[in-house]
């Protein structure tokens, strides 16, 4: 496990301006995602969060840098990386079942009808949509649509899930319920996931690592916060965990002020290839090995951002 499942090396996005110069949205972005890890990316609008996700998904080319999945450089989109879109992106002319089946047939075109049906049903049940298979997206609530989106992504058994603010369009109650379900599903399936959010509590609830991005243009990864809360956390007990408030304060503090100032006062030892790992609540920046949160899996995962 010396190499993470996903390795992002020095990706950048630049746009050519009309006068011939180019404006940089972000550059020199390096990070890695381990097998089974849940990583959240937090930053203000305009720092290129969605662009990073689209590059990972293969939907957009990077101006610079490389993305490796399982040691291989990615070329365009792949069934290995399922995307859950902010706007659910279901096909309105297909039923909930049809949407999931469309994805499953894309992955396994050789499957017969019965196998396809069983497989889709399993994932419909997993996201608690049993009974709504025959409904079209227009007949489903916002939360249910997003459940179909989650089922569609999971059903193709991707190596990783990419989520672009999947719950931001939902009301608070539905959002909370879906967050818990994603937490449960990722724990059950050991799904590797990368999620963009600007909800601090969502990040603390779901993520093992939280990547903090400075404001654009020329955004960069300021630091990577290791979530030291136990993985068995839930929405209701989250705020009772001893490290909850230090982490939360750290994140809010970053979003409110440090995300703006970071670029102006770069720390002397700042290395974009190896952004500092911090664990608020423990004492300051910690060595990588000590920052690994307690995990319910048998294998200890080494946080390794050095290549």
């Amino acid at each position: 496990m010396s190499d993470p499942l996903i390795r992002i090396e020095g990706i950048a996005k630049r746009f050519a301006a009309r006068d011939g110069t180019s404006s940089t949205v972000f550059e020199n972005v390096h990070f890695g995602i381990e097998q089974g890890e849940f990583v959240c990316l937090i930053g203000h609008s305009g720092c290129g969060k969605t662009t990073i996700l689209n590059i990972l998904a293969g939907l957009e080319p990077a101006s610079d840098g490389y993305v490796f999945v399982g040691g291989r450089e990615i070329r365009g989109p792949s069934l290995d990386r399922a995307v859950i879109f902010q706007s659910h992106a279901l096909m309105p002319w297909m039923t909930a079942f049809g949407n999931i089946a469309f994805a499953v047939t894309s992955r396994w075109p050789e499957w017969d009808r019965a196998r396809l049906r069983d497989h889709c049903q399993k994932y419909i049940d997993l996201v608690n949509l049993t009974g709504a298979e025959k409904k079209r997206p227009a007949e489903l609530s916002g939360g249910m649509k997003q459940r179909v989106g989650i089922a569609r992504a999971l059903a193709i058994q991707p190596k990783m899930m990419l989520m672009d603010e999947p719950f931001s369009a939902l009301d608070a109650l539905t959002r909370g319920m879906l967050q818990e379900e994603v937490l449960r599903i990722c724990a059950e399936t050991r799904q590797t996931a990368f999620m963009i959010t600007h909800d601090v509590d969502e990040a603390i609830l779901l993520a093992d690592k939280i990547i903090l991005m400075t404001n654009g243009p020329e955004a960069k990864i300021a630091e990577i916060v290791v979530n030291t809360l136990p993985r068995s956390r839930s929405r209701h007990t989250l705020h009772k965990e001893p490290h909850y408030y230090p982490i939360r304060n750290h994140l809010v503090d970053f979003l409110v002020s440090r995300s703006k100032q970071f670029n102006e006062s770069l720390p002397a030892d700042y290395d974009p290839k190896n952004p500092p790992l911090v664990s608020p609540g423990l004492s300051g920046a910690v060595p990588a090995a000590a920052a690994v949160p307690p995990r319910p899996v048998e294998k200890a995962v080494v946080v390794n951002l050095r290549h």
Binding site: A57, G58, L59, G76, P77, S78, L79, R81, A82, V83, F85, S87, A89, M91, F102, A103, S106, R107, I156
Partner: peptide, 20 residues
């Protein structure tokens, strides 16, 4: 977004034309 879904699912040209 529908085209992006088709892309991430590696849907072939003909299937994308007729199904999406």
């Amino acid at each position: 977004e529908w085209l992006n879904v088709a892309k991430t699912l590696e849907v072939g040209h003909l299937r994308r034309a007729f199904r999406v």
